[in-house]
């Protein structure tokens, strides 16, 4: 009874959550077990056919592609973003807020527009090729568009602020006297980084990775614009199945597969941070 009263304030939030997240989720799961008629309408007939189909090697390849893209995006944003977060935390307060502002600012610009910026930069007749040719470094335009790498650049670019902010928060929380103790005990800066800073910022790294990985699985307009459909990702496939293929049950099955991947990553994340919390309670 007491617990109920204490949690009463959470009830409206839970209702909203149920309406906005729970119902669509259940809907997707239910649809993934249904069939469709020739016109693409959903038919109330239970089937496992959709799941059988996504295990087809052609479709499994799409899962692998998406996983690779999301994983590499996490890796790239970590490698580039960690130093940014680390250096930012060492700036004096005024410059630090400026840097954080600059990192967050692109969020307020349409992501479609920013992706389009890469098209202008990387296109065969784009800025980079024009500059390279004007300088005489290359004879003909470099083919930079429509590759897996281009999609990776675009996705990493779109999501790197999440990584930086997550890592920055954990670097900033770091007790500076631990670094001093490390130097005092004879460690070099490099040793201090590897033995103290890095292990203590694992929660930030894991958090950033999760925040980047999840949307990277589903983004489809970046691979449409920059990848040119050369590599098929889950997002594109689902998008196509719903809008053109008119096969919503199969799209739903893919969505469930994607959700399973996300749950996998989140559970790894929570395990990583749980171990860490024990040590961080000092």
């Amino acid at each position: 009874m007491k617990a109920l009263r204490q949690n009463a304030l959470a009830i409206p939030i839970l209702i909203w959550f149920g309406l906005l997240v729970g119902i669509p989720l259940v809907y997707v799961v239910v649809v993934s077990f249904l069939s469709r008629d020739d016109l693409g309408n959903i038919v109330w007939q239970f089937t496992l056919d959709n799941y059988r189909r996504i295990l087809d090697p052609v479709y499994l390849r799409v899962f692998v592609n998406s996983f690779m893209l999301a994983f590499l995006t996490g890796l790239v944003t970590l490698l580039i973003g960690y130093p940014v977060a680390y250096i930012t935390s060492k700036l004096d307060p005024k410059r630090r807020s400026l840097a954080i502002g600059l990192i967050i600012l692109p969020f307020w610009i349409s992501s479609l527009l920013r992706t389009y910026g890469w098209v202008i930069l990387l296109g065969n007749w784009g800025i980079i090729n024009n500059v390279l040719m004007a300088l005489g470094l290359v004879d003909q335009p470099l083919q930079m568009m429509y590759r897996f790498g281009t999609t990776l650049v675009g996705t990493a670019y779109m999501l790197i602020p999440f990584m930086i902010i997550a890592v920055y928060n954990s670097v900033d929380k770091l007790d500076k006297s631990l670094l001093e103790a490390s130097y005092d005990l004879g460690a070099s800066k490099r040793q201090t980084f590897l033995r103290v800073v890095l292990p203590l910022t694992i929660p930030g790294i894991a958090g950033g990775f999760t925040l980047v990985f999840m949307p990277a699985l589903g983004l489809y307009f970046i691979s449409d614009l920059l990848g040119g459909g050369q590599t098929v990702f889950l997002g594109n496939l689902i998008h196509t199945l719903v809008n053109r293929g008119r096969n919503r049950p199969l799209a739903a099955a893919f969505s469930v597969g994607m959700i399973v991947m996300v749950i996998l990553v989140v559970s790894i994340y929570s395990r990583l941070t749980k171990n860490q919390k024990e040590g961080l309670l000092l």
């Binding site: 130093p83 940014v84 250096i87 840097a99 610009i109 527009l113 910026g117 930069l121 800066k189």
Partner: peptide, 26 residues
């Protein structure tokens, strides 16, 4: 904690240039 050194400042500057390059191109 030690202050950011020159190389670190340069890294940060290069990062911000790349971050805003697509926006500026548009």
């Amino acid at each position: 904690m030690t202050k950011a050194n020159r190389w670190q400042t340069i890294y940060l500057a290069v990062f911000f240039v790349i971050l805003y390059l697509p926006v500026l191109s548009v």
